[in-house]
């Protein structure tokens, strides 16, 4: 079996005059957790829907689990899990009954009761779907997405409406599925979520891949200039530099020991992300170009305070 779960080359999709996906190339290895990031209208949803076989493409080649999603059949579909945000068809049945029923669609389902436990609904297994809270319904959505033991799982904003504790539990669930060999494609607006879960992050904007890499190196993040801050003469000083270690060494010599209120800051994933999608906006001229985001790669060292 192929080591590649998803292979996309030159993917294009146009709605009228709007080119929603304008030539996306992407390869996702089996067992990988890939997070798709991008502003609304970046082409994320369209790309994912093409991968899921819900939308036809205008151009390019797509192979998902070795088949073309546009023509793949039920057996292919049974190897894919999709977590939807939508209402259950049977609000008056119990969580257990609904998960059991969906398990019946698949050739090799997980044990429904185990799945209910995995998503943290064990205590609510006998509750009617209509009585679940918003966060609990999202967990049921997840249960219905994984009950078929998917090799490839699509998650769309999976933790919307989760409290912080539930979000952590969900992250460990996805981590466990990935360690079990499942490939996961996660669409999210939560950069913290992408950083916690993803092996690689793909930033889409204006229908193109703007950056692709591990969360720690995305967009040159690891080598980006750091901001070193300290206090001197009662004033806050900040310096952006390519050589933070050398600067800290010099400061240590200068202060002969502890540097007052020393901080070294590298751009967060969010800062890098905003920078990337800001660039995409400026390229088109009319876009809402963001004001200079931190983390930009300008040369030299400058004092900003």
């Amino acid at each position: 079996m192929s080591e590649t779960a998803i292979e996309v080359a030159g993917l294009r999709k146009r709605y009228g005059d709007d080119e929603a996906v304008a030539g996306v190339d992407l390869t996702v290895a089996r067992g990988e957790v890939l997070s798709l990031l991008g502003p609304n209208g970046a082409g994320k949803a369209t790309t994912v829907e093409i991968l899921e076989g819900f939308r036809h493409r205008d151009g390019g080649t797509v192979r998902v689990l070795g088949e073309d999603p546009g023509t793949a059949g039920r057996r292919w579909r049974s190897r894919i899990g999709v977590v939807w945000q939508c209402e259950a068809l049977t609000p008056r049945l119990t969580v257990r009954a609904v998960v059991r029923h969906f398990a019946g669609y698949y050739p090799r389902p997980r044990d429904p009761d185990a799945v209910v436990g995995m998503v943290g609904l064990g205590e609510r297994a006998g509750a009617r779907v209509a009585s679940l809270s918003g966060g609990q319904r999202r967990r049921l959505d997840v249960a219905l997405g994984i009950v078929g033991r998917p090799e490839l799982l699509f998650l769309d904003e999976p933790t919307t409406g989760f409290d912080p504790r539930a979000r952590r539990d969900f992250w460990s669930l996805v981590g466990g599925l990935a360690r079990g060999g499942a490939t996961v494609v996660l669409t999210t607006h939560h950069l913290e979520e992408a950083e916690a879960l993803a092996d690689r992050v793909c930033v889409l904007a204006r229908g193109r891949v703007r950056a692709l890499g591990t969360p720690s190196t995305l967009g040159g993040r690891a080598s980006a200039r750091a901001t070193v801050g300290w206090s001197a003469d009662g004033r806050r000083r900040e310096v952006r530099t390519d050589e933070p270690t050398r600067l800290v060494g010099e400061l240590a010599t200068l202060f002969s020991g502890e540097v007052p209120e020393l901080s070294v800051h590298r751009p967060t994933l969010e800062e890098v992300y905003l920078d990337l999608i800001g660039e995409a906006g400026r390229e088109r001229g009319g876009g809402p170009g963001l004001p200079d985001a931190p983390g930009g790669r300008r040369a030299g060292t400058e004092v900003t305070a």
Partner: peptide, 14 residues
Amino acid sequence: DTGGLRRLRGTPMP
């Protein structure tokens, strides 16, 4: 309207 049919279409249900 509630997306229930779309969810079913995402399963191998014939």
